[in-house]
Write a protein that binds this DNA or RNA. Structure first.
Length: 799
DNA sequence: ACCTCCAAAGGACACCAGCG
DNA sequence: CGCTGGTGTCCTTTGGAGGT
């Protein structure tokens, strides 16, 4: 199918509804910007967006089941093109989409290049060329160029007189289907349809290419349609299979455990296969209702009738129904949105469903499959299998490696650990089994709590474990106890599949741009395979890294940060959760409270690095309005913390608290960093930092606080004395932004113990992530406004 | 503790230019 | 003639600061 859409975002729903039966879509004038994400359910997208200008852009959408590979993505002068190669029953075929704007000229070399890449090709595109002898009404300049290309002989065009463009009474054939010799004979049923929406413009062209394309291999993981599962049947079948395993069989060797696990896995898999249908991977188009689909069909019918009769009544009928269709699609969209919104408000905001919905709209992480080349260490991988193996090599060599540990106490620790191990071995051999056996109730309890996450290589989904039977639990208890007793984990459980997520804004060609996510069952001497588009790589050993969701990860983090609280005295309490840290203390007098917190914070500060070192690079690039907002926030928070009234001048606050204005603070930090870089003679860093500084200075300072207000002296004096405790702590440890959000002091007027809490909130993490991902300034701006919003919410909550 | 003023921010809308 | 993005205008809301 080929069409010039003029903004694909507006018409996605209609295209999906009308042309879902077609496997390959060539779309011109997508109007997509490079930073915009676009995905179509069930399709791989290959796009070439127009840079630095409006309009334009081409896109090829190819059904996900078809094996395909992008080999050209080029813009020559104004000509935009994307070419993808597919394997067919008649050998390789290159499919290209080309857009030539009305103002541009056809670049012959683009067509030559396509032909050079593969001399069996199919080119679809809005060439804006009219050539009378091939079915157009007239011939224009680009038509002459097209004629020259056709005269060279290698490309031919579909010769019919169907017009592809209509506006008012003007009709012309300006979209073309070009193909090389054998391929063109396989094209039939060429048809044009009513334009999208209500406008008069390009018509969709559909045709049938009578050859079969090679399909991608099926996913190595079995995917079931759990919605249609018959769980009763599953439990019945599971018990039938499990009964075949002898419960009295003793598990005495490692081999026994391995075979027993495989047998159990097989039972579950077989039962699942019988009790639930496999997910068929069919495209569900939920965006358009059945009524609308009927209307769309009607639109087709009426359109054809009008083209045949060309009478006024049919025309009016067609006009009316096309308006109905676009209204219906719009209403469907609104309905869907309101439905989503109503489920959101009905649910608890902490539930996973809410966040899934948010993610859907946020679509920063939508799957972007990439079918181009992958380059690693001078080798280029072209197909999925090669790519998967390249990733395997990359992860094995660079990511999951264990580097020799050369820290001072490493050897001592090692010998100590070894002696403990020896001792334990002796004890276990003498006293049978130290561990109390795992009971069936414990297993039931764990099984019930399993989340519905993706299965590992054994293809056993947690859903099927949650629907356990008593017999299964007995078997599981037996094998778990055997595992604990023998200290051997079945080989099958050590395998992992790694799927890849492309880090935003990174070069797709380089393996390091991808974040590996392992789908695994266990740990300890694991092996893994990389999965790309259903193709598995060779398996390789994982030597480092902790599994997602494993209790080990937080444990290791705790070990890592354990000493951060070592030097903090007893009077200060602290809480550590994942990457969040909080300190708090209580006291009768403000003075001692201040001292206590200050010393604790200083100790922590020694350990902790200032967030600004993570965040400055992005903060400094934001525009003035963000700085202003941050300044306002800082002022506000300081007032809140100090218990000062609204009319206190900001200058005065900063003067008394000795907290610099946020931007000045940033500059100060930056200058420090520059001087440090200079002492280390790191020229590139120095240059970068200086550039940032100049950007910062170019933003004119608007927060001009002029007159210091006269403030009732008594209040201020008491207030400042208390406040400096919170504020000095804050400024020394964490960036003003974060501290502000959370530093609160109970006003001195309140009798009894007052408490000060400092927390490094999520702001720190968000800023840190923002830098590491390297988002665009636009995204950062949004992110920062979100952070600020969040901080404000905290502030409000504290009031 | 409250009022008032000013400026900035932000939303709704119209309009225009550029692209096709 | 449609779509997009930018600009400008009008209006309301909000924030900051001064004043009583």
């Amino acid at each position: 199918m080929h069409i010039n859409v003029t903004s694909i975002k507006k018409h996605t729903d209609e295209i999906l509804a009308r042309f879902n039966t077609y496997d390959i879509w060539s779309i011109n004038e997508t109007n997509l910007k490079p930073h915009q994400l676009f995905s179509l359910q069930g399709f791989n997208i290959f796009r070439n967006d127009r840079q630095n200008k409006q309009g334009g852009g081409v896109l090829l959408a190819i059904r996900k089941s078809i094996k395909c590979f992008e080999i050209l993505n080029a813009t020559i002068e104004t000509n935009e093109a994307v070419a993808v190669q597919i394997e067919t029953s008649l050998g390789q075929l290159l499919i290209a989409t080309v857009y030539i704007p009305p103002a541009g000229k056809i670049q012959q070399k683009l067509f030559d290049e396509i032909y050079q890449l593969n001399n069996n090709c199919l080119i679809l595109g809005d060439l804006n060329a009219a050539l009378e002898e091939k079915g157009s009404r007239k011939t224009n300049a680009k038509g002459v160029q097209l004629k020259q290309i056709l005269e060279e002989g290698y490309l031919q065009c579909i010769d019919n007189n169907l017009t592809t463009y209509a506006r008012n009474n003007y009709e012309e054939k300006i979209d073309w289907i070009l193909a090389t010799q054998p391929t063109i004979l396989f094209i039939d049923e060429v048809e044009t349809h009513a334009p999208l929406g209500c406008k008069e413009d390009h018509k969709p062209i559909t045709f049938n290419l009578s050859m079969t394309a090679d399909l991608k291999p099926k996913s190595p993981r079995l995917t079931f349609n759990f919605n249609l599962a018959n769980w009763n049947l599953y439990r019945k079948k599971l018990n039938e299979y499990l009964n075949k395993i002898d419960l009295k069989q003793k598990l005495e060797t490692k081999e026994h455990i391995d075979t027993y696990t495989i047998a159990l896995t097989n039972c579950i898999t077989l039962a699942m296969k019988e009790a639930m249908p496999l997910a068929n991977g069919k495209i569900r188009n939920n965006n358009v209702s059945e009524v609308t689909k009927k209307l769309i069909e009607e639109k087709h019918k009426v359109y054809r009738k009008w083209r045949k009769t060309t009478n006024e009544i049919d025309k009016k009928h067609y006009y009316k129904i096309r308006e109905l269709v676009s209204n219906a699609i719009r209403n469907d969209r609104i309905e869907k949105l309101t439905a989503i919104m109503s489920t959101l408000s009905a649910k608890k905001m902490q539930s996973a469903g809410v966040w899934n919905t948010v993610k859907k709209f946020h679509n920063k992480r939508t799957k972007q499959s990439y079918s181009g080349q992958l380059i690693y260490q001078n080798t280029t991988a072209n197909n999925d299998q090669e790519k998967a193996n390249v990733f395997a090599r990359y992860f094995e060599n660079e990511i999951f490696v264990s580097k020799p540990d050369e820290t001072p106490f490493h050897n001592q620790v090692n010998t100590r650990a070894a002696s403990i191990k020896r001792k334990m071995k002796m004890e276990t051999s003498s006293r049978e089994n130290k561990f109390s056996p795992i009971t069936e109730n414990e297993i039931k309890c764990i099984l019930k709590q399993l989340p519905n996450s993706a299965p590992g290589p054994d293809a056993i989904h947690n859903r099927s474990l949650k629907n356990y039977t008593k017999l299964l639990v007995i078997h599981l208890a037996k094998i778990f106890n055997a595992i604990v007793g023998m200290g051997h984990i079945p080989q099958e459980w050590k395998k992992a599949n790694i799927i890849l997520l492309l880090k935003p804004k990174k070069e797709k060609k380089v393996p390091s741009s991808y974040r590996p996510i392992s789908l695994l069952s266990c740990l300890d001497q694991r092996t893994a395979s990389v999965e790309i588009e259903s193709t598995l790589s060779r398996s390789f050993a994982l030597k480092s890294g902790t599994p997602q969701g494993s209790p080990l990860s937080p444990l290791l983090y705790i070990l890592f940060t354990y000493d951060s609280m070592n030097n903090i005295e007893d009077h200060t309490q602290y809480g550590l959760f994942a990457d969040d840290t909080a300190l708090w203390a209580g006291s009768n007098t403000i003075k001692s409270l201040r001292r206590r917190l200050q010393t604790s914070a200083n100790e922590f500060n020694r350990w902790f690095r200032s967030i600004i070192t993570y965040g400055c690079t992005i903060l400094l690039k934001t525009d003035n309005s963000i700085w202003k907002r941050m300044q306002i926030l800082q002022n506000k928070a300081l007032r809140a913390a100090l218990g000062l009234p609204m009319y206190t001048s900001t200058e005065f606050i900063h003067l008394r608290t000795k907290i610099p204005m946020i931007k000045n603070y940033a500059k100060e930090i930056l200058n420090k960093a520059i001087s440090r870089a200079e002492t280390y003679q790191d020229n590139t860093t120095t240059e970068n930092l200086k550039r940032i500084l100049s950007i910062l200075q170019s933003i004119n300072s608007t927060t001009t606080v002029t007159s210091a207000a006269t403030i009732p002296s008594t209040t201020v004096v008491t207030a400042t004395s208390t406040v400096t405790s919170a504020t000095t702590v804050v400024s020394s440890t964490i960036v003003p932004t974060t501290t502000i959000t959370s530093a609160t002091t109970v006003p001195p007027t309140t009798a009894g113990p007052s408490t000060t809490v400092i927390t490094s909130t999520t702001t720190a993490t968000s800023i840190a992530t923002a830098t590491s991902i390297g988002m665009s300034s636009e995204a950062i701006r949004q992110e920062i406004s979100l952070i600020i919003l969040f901080s404000l919410m905290i502030l409000i909550a504290q009031f």
